[in-house]
Structures are given as structure tokens and as C-alpha cells.
């Protein structure tokens, strides 16, 4: 079921923090900063809330990329949830990498509430990265 590169529409899960990145996403929306639609955004209260299971679930269910957007360090509504996630992220990268998912399919970025353009830029860039990499190796395999 390999699709040609040109019609490859990556499926991307974005787990974004309610406070900063979600605001930036809304701002990108109201500022008419468009980015490709194939991003499924799921609002988390904090990146610190992101369980490793979510990332694994997304990859095993066929996500081509998982984007995680949180507040800049120091801006976290919950003081340091973002840094707590960052710590977990390191282990997750090692795991997905070993199982053949390019580490770059999992991306963490800090995007502040007023950074609508950064949100747009990050989304576009991430989609480009994923498009360049091609579909996830889990695509089309019955993995669950």
C-alpha cells in the first residue's frame, strides 16, 4: 500500500499545551496563518500531562509524526511540567528510534501564546520534514 511521494499526506498528531501552544494555534488561525490541515490537534492541559503511551499509541496507530508543543521554560502554568515532559522525551526518542521510527518523527517545541507565526512555521516545517521522510514504517501494518 505504498503511496507515491507526491500524494503522501502525512498523518500528524499534535499534542499541545492548553495554555501557550494552543493559544498560538488559535492565534495562527485568527491571523489567517494557514498550515496544512493534516494535523490532528489534541489539547493537553500541559505537556507534562503527556503519557508515553500517547506517543506510542500514535505511532503504532499509524501516525507519521507526533508533534508536541509546550510553553517556553519558565512560562509553564504548572511551573515546570514542560521540563518534566522534556525529560521523558529523551527516553521516548531512544525507544522509537530503536524500533525503526526516525527520531525526527517525534518533535518537541516550545511555542508561546503570542507566537502564532512560530506555530505556523513549526507545523509547516514539521510536515515538510515528515513528507521528506515518507510514510511511517508502521503504515499499513497491523500492529495493534
Amino acid at each position: 500500500m505504498v503511496k507515491s511521494m507526491s500524494d503522501f499526506q502525512p498523518k500528524i498528531i499534535a499534542l499541545v499545551c492548553n495554555w501557550c501552544t494552543y493559544t498560538a494555534a488559535d492565534l495562527a488561525g485568527t491571523s489567517r496563518l494557514s498550515y496544512p490541515a493534516n494535523i490532528r490537534m489534541i489539547r493537553m492541559m500541559c505537556t507534562g500531562m503527556i503519557d508515553p503511551k500517547y506517543i506510542l499509541k500514535a505511532f503504532l496507530d499509524g501516525a507519521d509524526g507526533v508533534f508536541i508543543g509546550g510553553c517556553h521554560p519558565g512560562d509553564c502554568h504548572y511551573i515546570n511540567g514542560n521540563l518534566k515532559f522534556k525529560k521523558r522525551m529523551a527516553g521516548m526518542e531512544a525507544i522509537i528510534k530503536q524500533f525503526g521510527f526516525d527520531e525526527n518523527r517525534l518533535r518537541l517545541r516550545w511555542i508561546g501564546a503570542s507566537e502564532g507565526p512560530e506555530f505556523q512555521h513549526n507545523m509547516t516545517d514539521f510536515i515538510q520534514t515528515i513528507q521528506d521522510m515518507g510514510p511511517s514504517p508502521a503504515q499499513g501494518i497491523m500492529v495493534l
Binding site: H72, P73, G74, N80, L83, K84, K86, K87, M89, L108, R109, W110
Partner: peptide
């Protein structure tokens, strides 16, 4: 985890 960190990319 780092309690404090300068802003910037992760």
C-alpha cells in the same frame, strides 16, 4: 529535571 532553563528550543 532542569528547574530553570533559558528560553530557546528544546
Amino acid at each position: 529535571f532542569e528547574e530553570k532553563q533559558k528560553s530557546g528550543e528544546p
